[in-house]
Design a protein around this nucleic acid. Structure first.
Lengths: 244, 244
DNA sequence: CCCTTACTGCGTATCGTCTACGCTAATTAG
DNA sequence: CTAATTAGCGTAGACGATACGCAGTAAGGG
């Protein structure tokens, strides 16, 4: 028990209960929650130990009694920010199930736009992260895939989903920052692309693909589903090949 | 011409040549290169204006004559760090071509492990980035896809590749940092996972999927290719459906 | 040839960040 | 009651980004 890493102990709430000194006026949970609210409101860059402490009405250094370092806090946030996954409808087929799952990941992550900027420090160990992992795995139970195959499929899906989310959130943030760059994207490329050197790209420009103003909320879901279905097509083939 | 964004002007080297004052002892290129070397050697976190200037034998503030801000410098790095793409073999079929391309992206990015930590501030505009974009598009020329379809396929592929790279690099960094967490991953999960609440995950653990020590350089390429081929399977179906 | 002008390098200073260390006060085990 | 343990926090150091302004340099115009 006491052999478990410190992060894991904190995330699962496995602290020794009988303590001697003064009652803590702060819990790790309070700190994590305050940090998440701050990140939601002002972005990940605004999360400093000082700002978090201010929000809790404590001094900066008080936080270090509960959290080893700022990186530690970020790790805690990466689990605490997630909701529990929606329960999978019973008897759902794997393809519908994974689409449902991916859409839920998208929904949850959209509420914490900083999430995809976190740097992973290891494989997932927190309760929420593992619950999501389990949820995706359970959908593949009846496919006949080996356990290792299921893990591969889910990891690939997670990578795709996170990659897509990160891309779209980064772009959305950039868009909010300086929209000119986006509305003029087609024009800028045309000024700079030499059809001799980059012929394929020049053809795309000539076809006017980047001429429409890019708006975000709409195009995102389409692109997301487009790539997702491609990936799931691949999974279907894999299942067929392996277990068919 | 002068209407182009500042970043674009810098990346394409479109500065006014006739200047009046003293000869610059520094070029934007020198600065970018120094920053890249620093990031390669000590990680992205080590890149500070002071450290970069020190490496060039200049003062910190001298850099701001050439670069608007640190974010600006990071944007420049995101283009300058890329090699030019290997030229596509003539007459290569799209699937082999995209696999070749993805492998090249993997190779280039492995040389700059910080690359996937950069936050994109907008759609790609630098010469190297666009060259890669063009290279992937050119492979799809004979598929009969619409220009928009090609863009979608390449964007999806890029997202997958970057996501995968980021995941594996983050994990590799975490592994270098504290290997215990990785070698004991299976054991930690078993201590913490309740088969009642997370049955699918418990089955994976029981099958011993996480019991083998995780080594990185080997498993990476397999996972990468596995997911890549799934995605390409999906693309094949899409081409069939659309143009078949 | 000189002066104006634009530009480079850089010193100074402000403000924000993380966090090591040690003190004080609160709480409880024995 | 005493000693051990622990929470909160003040101080301070090291480091980071960058606004501002000064001094010196090189070209263009006369």
């Amino acid at each position: 028990m006491s052999e478990l890493p410190a992060d894991v102990v904190l995330m699962w709430g496995l602290k020794d209960t009988a303590r001697r000194g003064p009652k803590p006026s702060l819990t790790v949970d309070d700190i994590t929650q305050a940090a998440i609210e701050l990140a939601d409101a002002e972005g990940l860059a605004a999360v400093s130990m000082a700002r978090v402490a201010e929000r809790l009405g404590n001094s900066t250094m008080a936080l270090y009694r509960h959290v080893k370092s700022k990186d530690d806090l970020l790790t805690l946030m990466s689990d605490a920010a997630l909701e529990h996954p929606e329960p999978m409808p019973e008897g759902i087929d794997w393809r519908t199930g994974l689409t449902f799952w991916a859409d839920n990941v998208l929904t949850v992550t959209r509420q914490h736009t900083w999430y995809s900027q976190l740097t992973l420090s290891g494989p997932p160990t927190g309760p929420k992260n593992l619950a999501w992992f389990d949820s995706a795995l359970s959908v593949l139970a009846d496919t006949g895939l080996s356990e290792e195959g299921k893990v591969g499929v889910v990891m690939g899906l997670l990578t795709y989903v996170h990659g897509q989310i990160r891309l779209s959130l980064d772009l959305a943030a950039g868009f909010a920052d300086k929209p000119e760059l986006f509305s003029r994207y087609g024009a800028v490329l045309k000024a700079v692309v030499d059809p001799q050197r980059l012929p394929a790209l020049a053809r795309v420009l000539a076809a006017g693909v980047f001429d429409t103003e890019i708006t975000y909320e709409e195009s995102d879901n389409e692109d997301f589903d487009f790539g997702l279905q491609l990936y799931l097509d691949g999974v279907a083939g894999f299942i067929e090949r392996t277990c068919g």
